[in-house]
Amino acid sequence: MGKGRVIAGFILTIVGLVLGLLGGLVAIASLTGLPVAIIGLVLSVSGGKAMKASGNPAGLATAGLVIGIIATVITAIAFFTCGLCVICAAGVSAAV
């Protein structure tokens, strides 16, 4: 039980990681990589918990989680900018 979700989650987190790394070359890749990685993470959590509850090993779920977290962090930080920078920059340009 949960094996299908674990496999799907593992694949999605790898795809998210690849898209996140490709985001260095193609900006749209990091935009799509983030939601893919997050969906992969959710599936890995859900499937992994189900497998553990039924007494099966959750090694693949663990691997999916590790890859998904790395993918999410890389994609999010490369894509999103710092705190109030958006407001500050807009304020400066409005003043100018």
Binding site: F80, T81, G83, V86, I87, A90, G91
Partner: peptide
């Protein structure tokens, strides 16, 4: 500020965390 400066939603989503 977002309303007053007319900052696009895309920029709001991209940047800004507390």
């Amino acid at each position: 500020d977002i309303i007053a400066l007319g900052i696009p939603m895309e920029n709001v989503i991209n940047g800004g965390f507390v």
